[in-house]
Write a protein that binds this DNA or RNA. Structure first.
Length: 660
DNA sequence: GCAAGGTC
């Protein structure tokens, strides 16, 4: 009988797949790694394999790592620039040796190796590592790969009958990234650390690292810092009308919103008052709805956890992993925001009916209110959206686990419920020559909102009844004045959103990068209520520094970030944690920006370009060698310029760290 | 002692 070795990317998958293939009939053998088990069973893979004796096992992520050859361990000799073309070696990490050995040993007895790693780029690369280990034990072993994106039984059985080949290109793309990140990271880190430490003071013993993800992340925070500091507040004036009728109040806002010139507003306001009567020019009532949320991705989970659960992204991921490892929720690292049609969502909803917090809501879904969730546009083809897989009572969980599990469940139930529905009314009036409008919503059916307290429909005010052509004298008409407010610093949710939009890091690593730049002393987390108040137009010395994205508060300045932020009052949001750069963080970004490198290291573009080139490798339109030649050349040029202009960097450090 | 990517 054909003997087959199956290897998954993580222990949980090997267990789940073995369970499906063996139909529960397998024997378990432990290995010398405490997390890895070998599952033995029989399975018919169909032609050409037929009935096989199977050993199913796993790795724990990547098996190997790359490093420089021994002659390049010293930080100053040979000089860092040599790292751009120093020889690198691939090694099995110490803590992975037993895992690699297990695969090598098992391969000896097998005619075929079936790889069950995640179906993404990293998974393809891990597959190639598994293959290399297996071939050390059995050079002639045949290698195949299963393609699957969830661990539903039917899906897994289908994958087992339709084995493919490993995608060498994707593995190569990952190889290329590894090599480039190592060379650039090590070269710049050694260069910065050895050259800036002599300046003394707080950085005398600091490790000053560069990384293709940590620097752009720091860049976002420094950018925002200058946007806040360079913000110039402007006075504006507006007109507000309100009218009481039938015991209800309607507030009308001005068609021009606001103007930055007081005399003009005064004249317009007086014209309004002179008209005495306002006339209703439009009455529109229409059905409206507030959309239920999309299925949950990692990025969204982190954003929500930092906003509503008082956790950092890093904590949220740790807790999510615990819940996943205990079998309560699905795999927590996913970019996918759409469920495969094959997944039995109703069955998952059913499991939640026993809870005394959301059980009734779940029961109502089961009884007919269930709606197939909305489908987002992201699909990593490796994992489904995050969802609860079994019910767990809150008493079996610790505080953080309970909170996060509750969020995952509520989010899932909200996805499977109907949109909230309401009636929106828009009233437009003319008062003198000026137009004003009022908008009101009445919520008719809360639907998903009943199970999802993280959202509400708050702008819902019921308007009095108006008829077209009706005239009235407003109860109140006022000229108001205000000041544009500065944008606020980035919250962790903002930062994660920026990283996501710019392709910095992956779902699994974003939180780590944010953590890293704190550990390095580049940024700090502070309470926005403490930081915010005095951030308007002080420090004339940096007045001339252009904020790179968006610039100063524009006329009508919305006080948002990138156009999508909430307008935040001058006092900031009390208790909200925000990121501000340290003097070192500002010095590094200003220093690098001051050197005017052809390719900026503090902006996300370089990383984006690398992602693009990795895609080209995957599509066969670029080779790994070509990628490395071009990218290394590019970074090498930036490195040479940095060496030449080291003084600019040092000056920035002196200026920001020593205030000279 | 350096990166970023897996996963425990």
């Amino acid at each position: 009988m054909t003997k087959v070795l199956c290897v998954a990317e993580k222990p949980s998958i090997s267990k789940a797949v073995a369970g499906h293939l063996a139909g529960g009939q397998f024997t378990t053998r432990s290995t010398s790694n405490q997390y890895i088990k070998n599952y033995c069973f029989r399975y018919d893979f169909g032609p050409p394999w037929g009935e096989c004796e199977v050993v199913m096992t796993a790795v724990i992520g990547h098996l190997t790592n790359i490093d420089f050859a021994p002659g390049y361990k010293n930080w100053s000799h040979p000089p860092p620039f040599t790292l751009f073309d120093a020889p690198v070696i691939t090694l099995v990490a110490d803590d992975k040796k037993a895992i690699a050995k297990n695969i090598q040993d098992q391969a000896r007895y097998a005619q075929a190796l079936f790889i069950w790693t995640d179906c993404d780029r990293e998974g393809e690369h891990i597959g190639s590592e598994i293959r290399d280990s297996a071939k050390k034990g059995n050079a002639r072993i045949q290698v195949k790969r299963a393609r699957f994106s969830n661990i539903e039984r039917a899906h897994i059985l289908n994958a087992a009958r339709n084995l493919r080949d490993l995608d060498e290109r994707q593995a190569n793309a990952v190889n290329a990234r590894f090599a480039l990140d190592l060379r650039t990271g090590a070269a710049f880190t050694r260069f910065l650390t050895t050259n800036l430490r002599p300046l003394g003071g707080p950085i005398a013993e600091a490790m000053i690292s560069y990384g293709s993800c940590q620097f752009p992340t720091l860049g976002f925070i420094v950018d925002q810092y200058f946007k806040v500091r360079n913000f110039v507040s402007e006075d504006f004036w507006s007109i507000k009308i309100s009218h009481k009728k039938d015991g209800l109040n309607a507030t009308f806002s001005w068609g021009r919103v606001r103007l930055f010139d007081r005399p003009s507003v005064t004249i317009l306001f007086e014209k309004c008052l002179g008209a005495k009567q306002a006339k209703v020019t439009k009455v529109q009532a229409k059905d409206t709805k507030k959309w239920r949320p999309l299925p949950l991705t990692t990025v969204e989970l982190q954003k929500m956890a930092t906003r509503f659960l008082r956790m950092t992204g890093q904590q949220a991921m740790t807790v999510a992993e615990q819940l996943y490892n205990k079998g309560f929720i699905s795999y927590p690292r996913t970019e996918t925001d759409r469920f495969d049609r094959g997944i039995d969502l109703r069955a998952l909803v059913q499991k939640q009916t026993q809870d005394n917090r959301w059980g009734d809501f779940a029961q109502n879904l089961v009884d007919g209110a269930f709606k197939q969730p909305r489908e987002g546009t992201h699909d990593d083809k490796a994992h489904p959206p995050i969802h609860p897989v079994t019910y767990v009572a809150s008493t079996a969980l610790n505080d953080n686990e309970r909170q996060l599990y509750e969020f995952v469940v509520r989010r899932f139930l909200a996805c499977c419920a109907d949109d909230a529905r309401g009636k929106a009314t828009d009233i437009e009036i003319e008062y003198g020559v000026e137009k004003f409008h009022a908008h009101g919503v009445i919520v008719l059916q809360r639907n998903y909102l009943d199970v999802y307290p993280y959202e509400n429909w708050t702008n819902s005010a019921e308007l009095p009844h108006f008829t077209l052509g009706e005239t009235f004298t407003p109860t109140e008409a006022n000229m108001t004045e205000g000041k544009t407010t500065p944008p606020s610093y980035l919250t962790e949710a903002d930062l994660i959103a920026l990283m996501d939009a710019n392709g910095i890091g992956t779902d699994a690593t974003m939180a780590e990068h944010i953590e890293k730049i704190q550990v390095r002393g580049y940024v700090q987390v502070v309470d926005s209520a403490v930081q915010q108040p005095d951030q308007v137009v002080d420090n004339a010395d940096i007045e001339d520094v252009p904020a790179s994205r968006g610039g100063r508060g524009s006329r009508g300045g919305r006080g948002g970030r990138g156009g999508q932020g909430r307008a935040v009052g001058r006092g900031g949001r009390r208790g909200v944690k925000v990121f501000v750069p340290t003097q070192l963080g500002v010095a590094l970004i200003q220093g690098f920006d001051g050197m005017n490198l052809e390719t900026s290291l503090s902006k996300p573009f370089l990383r984006k370009e690398m992602e693009l080139k990795m895609k080209l490798i995957c599509e066969g339109r670029m080779t790994q060698e070509q990628f490395l030649r071009e990218s290394i050349h590019q970074y090498r040029a930036a490195f040479d310029q940095s060496m030449e202009q080291l003084d600019v960097l040092k000056a920035a450090c002196r200026r920001y760290i020593f205030q000279q």
